[in-house]
Design a protein around this nucleic acid. Structure first.
Lengths: 237, 237
DNA sequence: TGTACATCAGTGAACGCGCGTTCACTGATGTAC
DNA sequence: TGTACATCAGTGAACGCGCGTTCACTGATGTAC
């Protein structure tokens, strides 16, 4: 019986490895041809398999695409959380620690532009993103704002020079975000954080999708400055 | 001879109309199926034409896609410039006038999410954007920052409370943008403007691509506040 | 330990489909004299 | 004004292609007794 389950586990392992290989080849094809052109037959060809063999691992093209998206979300979530851990151990100012995760997210995106497109680019039409992506999305956001939450909890978040009151309607609109990420943060800080997130995603997308070409000569420098300014605007010192 | 050229002109007009109809149907298909799935045959079918007829108007699928992208850029450029004209005639504070164009761009995007995806989403792989897009891109940016340029020229741009010096390297990196849009603006203001642009594009993309779902309950309110804060950060009062 | 059975990864042929592009053509409209 | 010719939008058949998915199958590996 112990032998039995050992074999069973071995078979499971082989299966997981094969699934991983399929996803890996699929990712290469994604990079070359884009999500809409993803083809089971050509993936099978690259793996030296009959097309029908893939149906042992995925129910069909849609399921494969779904798994691909989910895996990319999880990959970025883990990457961001690892960076957040590093930042937490870093010591240094709140402002300095805040820059770590955005830099990591940008690096991830620059190395995998097509996966970034899967997460933050044009949605694949007629295709509903899988459920699990919400969890990963939240993990990514939480890792990014973790230094803010910590500074806030420790009472180290500086108030803005010219505070502008947040209308009740806007406060309500960002309430789900505030509750999910940091229950104790003042509403106007939540608004600044969401704006910071917006700027970060925008900066990475503009760079990854090629919109700085010829205009902004050093995206790295600009990104660093931008993240520093966001931290500053949020009140991190 | 006057008759001749009148006929000639009539024939040209018909040709332009037909070209427009093809692009219009193509746009509908783009909305339904995405850029990668754009099909000459299905467009021809919708127009009641033989597939080969489209080759009288476009050299092939790639040329049609190219024309579609170019047309969307031009559409947004015209829309943004019209809004800028309206804003210029508006009177009111610099800050108030600054909000007009971003709101217009957002409206354009929300009504044509797929065209927004064409301009600012995942690039279609293996497909090089047509030359002319750069011109339109510049027109859109110029329309957006026009109130900044005017306020600056009139000496009404307020200095930031806590000015942070711009390192020389970053100044060089944004130089092409500064020179193209407002030759007289201080470098640190240019940096803030580029960051504002980044935030605006990011906010619209996150909304259009469906990333606020369940998190940010009122994107309109958030966008308005965001644009107001950007204007404020740039120094418009 | 040996044998009969179950599981399951992978095969390979076949299906029906929609695609982009080509080509020789028709026929209406415009042009030249 | 009438006639011969040129232009050009649109036709329809044909090409070769790659696709997703299905199905009955083989054969290796694991399981039960």
């Amino acid at each position: 019986m112990s032998v039995t389950s050992a074999s069973h586990r071995a078979r499971d392992r082989v299966r997981r490895e094969m699934t991983g290989e399929i996803l890996s080849v699929a990712r290469q094809h994604l990079a070359r041809d884009g999500a809409a052109a993803l083809s089971l037959r050509s993936i099978a060809r690259d793996l030296g398999l009959a097309p029908s063999a893939l149906y042992r691992y995925f129910e069909g093209r849609a399921a494969l695409l779904s798994a691909l998206i989910l895996a990319s979300y999880e990959s970025l979530a883990e990457w961001a959380e690892a960076a957040a851990e590093r930042a937490a151990r870093l010591g240094g100012s709140d402002a300095a620690r805040f820059t770590v995760v955005p830099q990591a997210i940008r690096s991830w995106a620059l190395e995998r532009p097509h996966e970034w497109g899967l997460l933050f680019g044009t949605p694949v039409p007629g295709y509903q993103a899988p459920e699990g992506t919400v969890v990963s999305y939240t993990r990514i956001a939480a890792a990014t704002v973790r230094p803010v939450a910590e500074a806030s909890a420790a009472g180290r978040l500086e108030a803005p020079e010219r505070p502008t009151p947040v209308p009740e309607a806007l406060a309500g609109a960002v309430a789900p975000i505030g509750e999910a990420l940091f229950p104790d943060l003042a509403t106007d800080a939540v608004v600044r954080v969401v704006r910071g997130w917006t700027t970060m995603i925008g900066a990475i997308s503009l760079e990854v999708f090629g919109h700085w070409r010829g205009a902004l000569l050093d995206p790295t420098l600009f990104f660093e400055r931008t993240i520093a300014d966001i931290g500053d605007a949020i009140g991190l010192r």
